[in-house]
Design a protein around this nucleic acid. Sequence first.
DNA 1: TATTCTTTTCCAAAATATTGGACTCCATTC
DNA 2: GAATGGAGTCCAATATTTTGGAAAAGAATA
Lengths: 248, 248
Amino acid sequence: MSTLQRTMVILEYLAEQGTAPASELIEHSGIPKSTAYLLLKELLQLGLISQDERGNFRLWVRLIALGERASEQLDIRETSRPHLEKLMARTGLLCHLGIFDGDAAYYVLKIESQGSISVRSYVGKRLSLHRSAVGKCLLAWQPEAVRESIIASTTFEQVTPTTIATPEALAEELKLIRRQGWGFDNGEDEPDVRCVAAPVFNARGEVAGAISVVGASMQVTDDLTADLTEQVVACARNISRDLGWSER
Amino acid sequence: MSTLQRTMVILEYLAEQGTAPASELIEHSGIPKSTAYLLLKELLQLGLISQDERGNFRLWVRLIALGERASEQLDIRETSRPHLEKLMARTGLLCHLGIFDGDAAYYVLKIESQGSISVRSYVGKRLSLHRSAVGKCLLAWQPEAVRESIIASTTFEQVTPTTIATPEALAEELKLIRRQGWGFDNGEDEPDVRCVAAPVFNARGEVAGAISVVGASMQVTDDLTADLTEQVVACARNISRDLGWSER
DNA sequence: TATTCTTTTCCAAAATATTGGACTCCATTC
DNA sequence: GAATGGAGTCCAATATTTTGGAAAAGAATA
């Protein structure tokens, strides 16, 4: 495992835990003690982490700086923001933009509704590709080779009663999503949470991201779904147009 | 130069430039070609950067995720936000919170005023410790050893007519800042930009950050300064209290 | 299509980082 | 105050990464 991979393990762990002592980082990462201390020292020097008076480490200011610049420079994020704000205003629901990376999706923009619901989400949240509406949308429009390979390497833990359980079922659902032009999540990752998502395309016609509205199942009732879907799809299409996409 | 340092050079360059081809990164960083390609490949795999169809690199989603978590977990930032919002409402000026790291200060929070001024700043912006109000405040209350060593290693380029030019002048000014409890910047980094800053202390009485209000010199006139200073100092004190600080 | 230029990959030698284990330091317990 | 145990450092042997140069693959031009 390279230094960089090890670094990511440590930073990700701190991102989750907030703060941790060296011993915990060593145990979690499995890096030999002596190397770990060298690595931590270097991360400190680079301002990626800091250490408080009790010796605990936490993420630090250089990461904030880099993350902020990365956000600003992500075109799709800035393009989507006004559209998602409108969508949120209309639906009153929590809205997200997610993008695909490697073997997962990540929220990169979150527009909160006033009556903040109990659904916990945050920018940077990692989403499974087969247990989230955004993930499934992103996966559905990946090039076939990528899609196949991801399906093949997915492990289908049964997280809730509705979690997709087999590669066949997933492939089938992705086909459905492509056909209808939008995806959904009916409590597949967290019970009682429902999402509707739609893909956003760039000028080259590739899927650049996916937007979703999220709500508790009492908010996203079956009656509402049709209307909601229409709004999400329309919003996604508007963003795509702003990104230079045009149908056919 | 270690892999991690090289990585930072590349990421920082992309943070500045937004996007760059491999050749440019190689030239800028001075990393040998073959190593650079290996490094870029690894950064791609980790989702720290991405590559568009033309081969250009840019910062990517894992950095957004890490930066976002780092922000959220920075207590002083969340504690300061409401106070700075109030300060902005009262003064109508751009407000910042900056923290110290190693040999520079960084903005970690920015509260913009409506009539957005021409002063360009952003979260993550790196500030010189001797040419900014926030930097000078942070430096003024560092432990003496740190302060001395930073003064000794500072290079005093004359960026504007008012830039502090010698170690002696800097030491003198820091003494003044400590005595009066607040700092200022009279176009020392950018001509025509004025700032007033005050230090924020944590429960242990250490300087944890500094807040500032920024404006063009026509906005921050001499008449206004006294009143502004009072407000900034009061705001900083309130934040310090929220962080558990108590005077003596 | 041939030619040139640029980008990217490949390789074995050289440089660098990593490692286990022993050691120091310091706080806590007996 | 001796004994225990955790945290952190140090070192020379070992493993890994880095490197320049050469070659391959692509792009751009003629």
